[in-house]
Amino acid sequence: MADSLRDQLLKSGIVKQVREEQRAKSPSPAPRGGRPPQGKGKAYVPKPRRDDGEVDLAKAYAIRAQTEAAERKRAEQEAAEQARIKRERKAKIQKLLEGQALNKAEADQVRHFEYGGKIRRVHVDADQLAAINDGRLGVVQQNGRYLLVSQAVAEQVRGIDPHQLALLVDPQAATDDDGVPDDLMW
């Protein structure tokens, strides 16, 4: 019965002798500031770094952030280059189409065609409708408008940017009969 509460806890194993273990590990407190005590004891030796292939978590985040930044920069440069090429193509086509449009304000017929997944239309007269269906005229999309141009100009536009050529009927391909006449009026 003379056992104190501390002794009883130690016997039961609930509490370990922490103080004794701490005393066994370091007999004196560690010097502060990383400097050895003046004139006594051993010189300060920094801990050796782990060079067994492990990367510090902060370094891993820094590397990841750096690679992501480089990837973003590369994507922005690529997008800027694509935009520059697109502007150059658009300027070439604009210069080529100056004075080449054959659209007439008094056109009374409509020629429908598929462009960009939708049915589009251009106003033509009877002679232009026949020429479009024969492949002598083409339709070019420029600034949201559809311009009638000669076959030669349409081929030049196709060489610069094939996406701007909305309609150019191939006379050899027009011989296949799909049951729908080319000059069908809607």
Rank of each mutant, 00 (worst) to 15 (best):
K73H: 07
G53E: 09
A126D: 11
I85A: 10
L184S: 01
L129R: 14
P36V: 11
E98T: 04
A62P: 00
R74I: 01
Q172Y: 07
I63H: 13
N133Y: 00
Q141N: 05
Q82G: 00
G135F: 12
K25D: 07
Q172F: 04
H123E: 09
D183V: 03
R158D: 09
K104Y: 00
E21L: 08
P29V: 14
G13L: 07
Q100Y: 01
L57H: 09
I160P: 06
V15M: 15
A174D: 06
P162A: 15
R120M: 13
Q128H: 03
G13Q: 10
I132Q: 06
L165W: 10
K73Q: 09
A154W: 12
I63P: 00
A69Q: 14
Q109G: 02
N133F: 01
L184F: 09
K90C: 01
I160H: 06
G33V: 15
A131W: 01
L9F: 13
L10E: 11
V153F: 03
Q66G: 11
R35Q: 14
P162V: 13
P46T: 14
H123P: 00
V180C: 02
L129I: 01
Q141M: 08
E71R: 15
P27H: 15
K59A: 12
E81R: 05
P27S: 15
D51L: 15
V110T: 12
D3Q: 10
L10T: 12
E88P: 00
E21W: 10
G53C: 08
Q66F: 06
A2C: 03
P181Q: 03
A60Q: 13
A126V: 05
Q66C: 07
D3T: 02
V110G: 02
A174L: 09
V45T: 12
E71S: 13
A105H: 02
L5Q: 13
R89K: 13
R145V: 07
Q151Y: 09
K47Y: 04
D52M: 08
D176I: 02
G99F: 03
L97V: 04
I119P: 00
V140Y: 07
D125V: 08
A60N: 09
A174F: 03
K90L: 07
A75I: 02
I63D: 12
D125R: 06
D3W: 12
L97H: 04
Y44H: 14
L137P: 07
E106A: 11
K86R: 08
P37M: 13
A79C: 01
K42Y: 02
G144C: 05
V149E: 03
E106V: 10
A30R: 11
D134G: 10
Q164D: 07
S4Q: 11
Y44V: 13
R120S: 12
R74T: 03
D108Q: 11
V122H: 05
D177P: 05
R23K: 15
S26Q: 13
A58T: 13
P181L: 03
E88G: 03
K90S: 04
M185N: 05
G39K: 08
M1R: 06
Q94Y: 00
V15P: 08
G34T: 12
E21Y: 04
K16W: 12
E78M: 01
D176A: 04
A173S: 06
